Structures are given as C-alpha cells and as structure tokens.
Amino acid sequence: MASLNVYSVLVVLFLTCGVVMATKENDQIIKENNCETKMGLPCVLEAFTSIFNTRIISNKCCSELVVLGKVCHSALVKRTLENPVFKDLNPATMIAKSIQTWNNCLALIDSPSPSA
C-alpha cells in the first residue's frame, strides 16, 4: 500500500513539474522575443477575440499578428490558456483556432493586392 502512495505522489509531482516547465518555457519565449511589445493593445484584443470568441480580425491587425511572429503568437496563446480563468476551455480547440487565425492572417498578408 505504501508503494501505491509513493507512486501517486511521483505522478502528481511529474504532472505538476510539467505544467510549471510549460509555463516557464512560454514566459521565457515571450521575454526573449519581446513578444509583449510587438503588437498594439487594440490588435492584441482583436486577435484575442478572434481566437477565443470567434470574431473576425481586421487586415491591419492581421499584419501586426504576422509581424509578431508565429513563435510569439503560439507562446502568448499557450500562456493565456494556462490562466485559471480559461480552465473550462478545451486547450486543443483553442490552439486549433489560434492556428486557424494565424494561417488566415498569413494568407491574407501573403496574397497579392488587387491592382488599383
């Protein structure tokens, strides 16, 4: 019975360390890449609502998102999902929505503009 308790404690420690490491990894990426300074607050909010509330993101904010970069975008989304406020959201669904927003913006920015 004691070995079962030790095993349970080790599993809990392993899972807890994994979450702490993920948090530190995202924070490190955000800090090293100055992610929090690359987008204006209005576009941060617009991108956030695009991912978490299924709203449309403007061309201007798509441009800022692409300049922010995929690494920063992913780290910021993952850090947001670590917040207890979002505990009821399915992380896989939210990450898929963030990738969809990223890909839509990238396609929009990379597509040639119609001639005027």
Rank of each mutant, 00 (worst) to 15 (best):
V9I: 13
S3A: 12
V67G: 00
A47P: 00
M1W: 06
E64I: 14
L108R: 12
T37D: 13
E82P: 02
V44D: 09
K38D: 01
A22Y: 00
C61D: 11
C35K: 01
L65A: 14
M39D: 08
R55P: 01
V6W: 12
C43V: 11
D88N: 08
R55V: 06
V12S: 03
A92M: 03
N90E: 09
N103W: 03
A116L: 15
S98Y: 03
K38F: 08
A75Y: 08
P42T: 12
S8R: 10
R79D: 02
S8M: 13
S113G: 05
C105W: 14
V20P: 00
V19I: 14
V20H: 00
N103L: 04
N5E: 10
V20L: 06
F52W: 11
N104I: 04
P114K: 11
A107R: 14
V85Q: 04
L4N: 03
K78Q: 11
N103A: 02
A75S: 12
L13E: 01
V11I: 15
L10P: 11
K78C: 04
F86A: 06
N104L: 09
V67Q: 04
L45F: 09
Q100M: 10
L81F: 05
V12L: 15
D27F: 05
I30Y: 02
N59R: 11
V11E: 00
G18I: 00
A2H: 09
V9N: 01
K31Y: 05
T37S: 15
S113R: 11
M39I: 14
N33A: 10
S8E: 07
F14Q: 01
M39E: 12
N34R: 02
S98E: 05
Q28C: 02
A75D: 10
E36W: 05
S63E: 15
H73Y: 15
V20Q: 01
I95K: 05
V71W: 04
E46K: 01
S115I: 08
N59E: 10
Y7K: 02
C43D: 04
C105K: 07
D88S: 13
L89H: 08
R79P: 01
V19W: 01
L68H: 05
N83G: 03
L108Y: 05
N90A: 08
S98W: 06
C72R: 01
A2D: 13
K31C: 00
P42A: 15
I57N: 10
L106S: 14
L10E: 14
T54F: 08
L41Y: 10
L108G: 02
M21L: 09
S111F: 15
D88I: 09
